[in-house]
């Protein structure tokens, strides 16, 4: 049967140079990411170049994605949070495009690698920390002191709040990575059952069952691909809201 993990293997396309002993390598993952950035840039630039009052189809798509992300940011971080709109929009589009491209058969899913999702989550959390300290100074540390807690419980609560804060980039990255990885493995395994059953003589009569399941899973994975991009954007805005208003 086909190896379900094989699809996540990185393949070297070109070696760009060396940092110490580490080769600096252009993999198919980097190519997909560069392609996604170019595609998003073209999408937004072409969509907004016309600026019609009655939008064309492309412009309408760009406006819809703008309105969608802007609504997400406004509802989670308030109008003040709109200063982070470029960050959230870039993250949302980047993850959305990469997730959807990953659904194309034989393509590579960049977001199924935890180092990618963790880097994205680290960008978010570093933005929260740096902006929080820049805007509020040490007052930002008030984030870790919950209000309305008896004094004897406070040290424990502060420790838990700190760990909870450290766990944010982990949960943010693990959620996206695990969803994409598990979905694609499940898809591959069930699709692999079809040829395996067909090759097993009379068992071939059962082959339509995993095929139907594969089709259903594909629909589910499409939903998950969009949903996870949205969840990432929402949580980013919620965390950014903490940087804007650290006091509970």
């Amino acid at each position: 049967m086909a190896d379900p993990i094989h699809q996540f293997e990185l393949k070297t396309i070109a070696t760009v140079g060396h940092i110490g002993n580490m080769p600096l390598v252009l993999t198919q993952s980097s190519v997909y990411m560069i392609g996604a950035v170019i595609a998003i840039t073209l999408f937004v630039l072409l969509g907004t170049s016309g600026r019609r009052l009655v939008p064309t189809r492309l412009q309408s798509m760009v406006e819809l994605s703008y309105e969608f992300v802007a609504g997400t940011v406004r509802s989670s971080a308030g109008t003040e949070g709109m200063k982070f709109f470029p960050l959230v929009f870039s993250l949302f589009m980047f993850i959305l495009i990469l997730n959807l491209v990953g659904m194309v058969p034989y393509s590579f899913t960049v977001t199924s690698h935890i180092i990618i999702t963790f880097a994205l989550a680290a960008i978010v959390i570093l933005t929260v920390i740096i902006y929080g300290f820049m805007a509020h100074g040490t007052h930002f540390l008030g984030l870790f002191v919950p209000s309305g807690v008896p004094a004897w419980l406070l040290p424990l609560m502060v420790a838990i709040e700190v760990i909870s804060f450290v766990s944010r980039p982990i949960s943010l990255s693990v959620r996206l990575f695990a969803n994409m990885l598990a979905g694609h493995i499940a898809l591959k395994i069930f699709a692999g059952f079809v040829p395996a059953l067909l090759a097993a003589g009379a068992w071939g009569l059962l082959a339509p069952l995993p095929l139907a399941l594969t089709i259903a899973l594909t629909a589910l994975e499409m939903l998950v691909a969009v949903l996870q991009a949205y969840v990432f954007a929402t949580l980013t805005s919620i965390y950014l809201n903490d940087a804007l208003h650290p006091g509970h």
Binding site: I163, S167, R168, V174, R175, A178, V231
Partner: peptide, 19 residues
């Protein structure tokens, strides 16, 4: 979606604490 979200929220706690 909720199950995925909550499980990630929970798992990340011990991971962060362990780290």
């Amino acid at each position: 979606a909720k199950a995925f979200r909550l499980s990630a929220e929970f798992v990340s706690g011990p991971i962060a604490g362990g780290l």
